[in-house]
Design a protein around this nucleic acid. Structure first.
Lengths: 335, 335
DNA sequence: TTAATATTTGCATTCGAAGTCATTATTACG
DNA sequence: CGTAATAATGACTTCGAATGCAAATATTAA
């Protein structure tokens, strides 16, 4: 029926013998239209294949119905799951995801330009680091922002985050059952907020547990860096008793390297823990003891928080911290 | 500077002492504006923090600058990489990604409604199955579509796909070096086009290789289904000599199950091959022989094809088939 | 210097739906 | 049955940038 020609509300109005306003009202929920008019309009609209033009609606209502989701390549952790959850949750609230990937720090300016011009209703940032002046820019433009999996102390930001402190404490408690002497902490990259936080928490908790001998290594969250860090360490040092990895992927690298190239048995020779609870952490070859992030709840919280700020822009900043789940795998020695 | 108040082209025009048209022309590339006017406008614009409103521009130009990317949950394979590539490639062409997730087949109607109302410039579908009347709908609405990783025979669709036939032939050639007697083909789900294609190609190629003894199992592409299928098979049958898995994830499940629960050694007892070349297929514990999909090139091709259709809507349908790379891992016995 | 041409510029209109406001139809009730 | 109150309707304006067109200005040629 509608071939090549876009049908507008005027076309439908003419066809239905009513005014354009009437058509508009029929397609806006909760407006008073008589049943008779509604029927006339709906039949005409269906016959002609009319769909309201979202762009025109955005312009007049100043609500794009879109949420910018910013993903940095470092977000790989639970990326597919998080992103698809975000998309679903937002769809349920009648919002769409406008996706931006941010790899290059130089791209931030360009990214922000895009966000302003697209007049998004809000922003969810996954694992992207923004300096505080960047956050201030959002404020200036009256665009609510929620930082996912981020814990920015002293900040004005809305954040949703898994409880790192509690999680890492549970992991260390597991490890301490064997009274390990020598600890290795395999941190993520120094320029990652999450990595720094996890590392510092681990260090300070180990102090609380009266652990003396702790060394810090720096990887980049990747499998290969897990392998490389362990290999390098073993070149000059004896094997540690326990390794705390800042994420599961590096833990998997550590385990593979230990097994294949150094004939070290996990967990008997070294206990390893990870963080995140990614799918492959549960695979039989690894079975990592780790903290599983409650992705669905985290996303729900983030979306709910964002929608609240869109509704009521002047709510004070808030940080929601959810508890992860300890997965007792097979990578920590049984005492 | 610009606090709370949106700056429009009229504001800038007044400030710069020119007309609104002039402002518009300055921000549209390739239009003739004198250097003097351009400077006046740019200073005013910068001072006031003006950014053109993309929504208004969309309305008048009838180009949203957005491409709908439809992802089904089954697309998990290389999801993060593909999606981030798509986003990057499109960004380079000044287009944004409007993300839609499609899990529930009942959601298709709703999804299509959304796509029409948002007036996207084009659509890229990742691993989502559409019946041909759906594709026809896109045609009616003049929205170009490219199907990623899909091979629809006899269809009017634009597709980009990795050469399954060639890839699987290479894999079988590897396996045949050991003259295996008994083959297992572990297929993906029956309602997945890609799974069906890979399975049928494997079966027909095995015939060409004069292989007699082939059994087909059906998984759902997941790790767990790889494990379950093998376990179930071994309950009633002896171990096969070779297993062709329709993707790497199931191959990993097969390997884990064989090793851990049946004391079967890979590759000495059973040779296993996968498909896709996902990151974890290269992990030391698995080292799967597989075909690595040329993701970057596939995405490049898909984006290029889509842009061509947007530019020139009447181009005939096209299928681009790229060749994957054989990764010789350690999951096939050395003869 | 003037005519002829090319380049800039601004006015007015457009895109398509939504909302304002005044007007008309409908209902309720004394 | 008349009047007040309420519901439904349409004419008109708005959102913000882009563009066809004609007028104004600048540039070049003669």
């Amino acid at each position: 029926m509608a071939k090549n020609k876009k049908v507008t509300s005027y076309d439908v109005a003419r066809e239905a013998g009513v005014s354009q306003s009437a058509v508009s009202r029929v397609f806006r929920p909760g407006l008073s239209v008589s049943q008779k008019t509604r029927d006339k309009v709906m039949t005409a609209a269906n016959r002609m294949g009319y769909r309201p033009n979202a762009i025109a609606r955005m312009l007049i209502t100043k609500q794009s119905g879109m949420v910018a989701v910013i993903v940095s390549s470092r977000a790989n952790v639970n990326y597919p799951e998080v992103l698809s959850q975000v998309s679903k949750q937002l769809a349920a609230q009648n919002k769409r995801v406008l996706l931006f990937t941010l790899d290059d720090p130089d791209g931030v300016d360009e990214l922000f330009e895009q966000i302003w011009t697209f007049q998004v209703d809000g922003v969810i940032a996954l694992a992207a680091h923004f300096e505080s002046h960047r956050l201030a820019q959002f404020e200036e433009h009256d665009i609510p922002v929620v930082l996912y999996n981020r814990n920015v102390p002293d900040s004005m930001a809305n954040t949703v985050c898994c409880n790192h402190e509690l999680g890492i404490k549970q992991l260390i408690t597991e490890l301490e059952k064997n009274n390990p002497k020598k600890y290795l902490v395999l941190s993520g990259p120094k320029d990652s907020d999450v990595a720094n936080e996890r590392r510092e928490i681990a260090i300070s908790l180990l102090k609380q547990f009266d652990v003396e001998d702790v060394s810090i290594l720096y990887g980049d969250y990747s499998y290969q860096s897990g392998r490389d860090c362990l290999a390098k360490w073993l070149q000059k040092n004896p094997a540690p008793d326990a390794i705390i990895c800042s994420n599961d992927t590096m833990a998997i690298g550590v385990i593979d390297e230990a097994r294949e190239n150094h004939n070290i048995h996990i967990p008997n020779d070294i206990s390893v823990v990870g963080f995140d609870g990614i799918t492959s952490s549960a695979w039989l070859s690894y079975q990592i003891t780790t903290i599983k992030q409650p992705v669905e709840q985290l996303v729900k919280a983030a979306v709910a928080m964002l929608l609240e700020r869109i509704e009521t822009p002047d709510l004070p900043p808030e940080a929601r911290v959810l508890t992860g789940v300890l997965i007792k795998g097979n990578s920590v020695k049984r005492p």
